[in-house]
């Protein structure tokens, strides 16, 4: 029992990490999105439809969910990336609420073994049973979640050292100056939004299959706000930052029963304090630079 409890918490941390990384990527390019939950939702529905209704294997369902989320992100990106600051935030919020409201009325059901399966408006989408039908245990599914998270995280670490990653940080710091380096900022921002959509989508697809049930109200704006806060708590200097934020929130505040009642109070307070003391989070760019310097020093001392 305790084991299952632990596995559930760890699985939740893993899944939420994807949406946190998604919001983090946009924070790196200097945009605050209140709408990453929409891509999480689109993929949860999309992958659920693929496995439960079309009978696709689970891995294909996950891939499909991520692709649908990426496509949705592209549709959002093209008209919105030219907006700056608050306008971009409001546009993403409006889009996410639009998606949620569409799922409130979206009904698409087919009869399988005498039962109706599929999204049923505000009643949600039940019986996404792919992992139970194929006898994947909760522990094994947790390993799948962390396997995918490791792949995405390695991708982020490579990005961090790459030209594309440097360009994303440049755009976050000074988009006009980036443009004057001969780089098409709009194009790179669209790319960032699509990548963020895909990352959120992986989390959404994993979520739908673990929960077996999704309904529109899960994907309300609080999910997106949390996703943003994780990066701002953990730090914007490294992809480990948002993961630290998730671990603090879900690992400590939500899971320790004695304090879980005060979760939102502590969480809100934490965000408020950090925004004043460390506006770019615990592991911000300067902290990461210092850590990397220490790391290089250690390696040199070893040799």
């Amino acid at each position: 029992m305790d084991d299952i409890y632990l596995i559930t918490i760890l699985s939740n941390i893993g899944m939420i990490s994807f949406i946190a990384l998604s919001a983090y990527l946009l924070l790196v390019v200097g945009e605050i999105s209140f709408g990453q939950q929409a891509f999480f939702a689109v993929s949860a529905y999309g992958s659920g439809i693929a496995t439960a209704m079309w009978g696709w294997p689970i891995w294909l369902g996950l891939l499909w969910g991520a692709l649908v989320a990426g496509a949705a992100a592209l549709v959002v990106a093209i008209p919105t990336v030219r907006l700056r600051g608050l306008y971009f935030s409001v546009a993403t919020l409006a889009f996410a609420e639009m998606v949620r409201l569409i799922f409130e009325i979206f009904t698409y059901q087919v009869e399988i073994d005498g039962e109706l399966v599929g999204p049923d408006g505000s009643d949600g989408f039940r019986d996404i049973r792919a992992i139970y039908d194929s006898n994947v245990s909760a522990f094994e599914y947790m390993l799948i979640i962390y396997g995918l998270l490791a792949v995405v995280l390695i991708g982020f670490l490579i990005l961090e050292r790459s030209r594309l990653g440097a360009i994303f940080r440049m755009i976050g710091e000074d988009p006009m100056l980036t443009e004057m380096q001969g780089l098409n900022v709009t194009k790179y921002k669209i790319l960032a939004v699509v990548m963020a959509g895909i990352v959120a989508g992986i989390g959404g697809a994993l979520y739908a299959h673990l929960a077996t049930y999704v309904e529109p109200k899960i994907f309300n704006v609080m999910l997106g706000v949390h996703a943003l806060a994780y990066g701002l708590i953990g730090g914007l200097g490294t992809a480990f930052g948002p993961l630290i934020g998730v671990a603090i929130d879900i690992g400590l505040l939500e899971s320790i029963r004695a304090i879980s009642g005060y979760r939102m109070i502590v969480f809100g307070g934490l965000v408020a304090v950090l925004l004043i003391v460390r506006p770019r989070g615990l592991l911000d760019e300067a902290a990461m630079h210092w850590l990397r310097g220490r790391w290089r020093g250690l390696i040199r001392a070893e040799n």
């Binding site: 030209r163 440097a166 940080r169 440049m170 710091e173 100056l177 380096q181 001969g182 630079h289």
Partner: peptide
Amino acid sequence: RLFGHLTVWQNLWVAQNS
């Protein structure tokens, strides 16, 4: 106007790269 969050090397590298 520099990219303060990037290293000196990266500042030049991206300009060169572009």
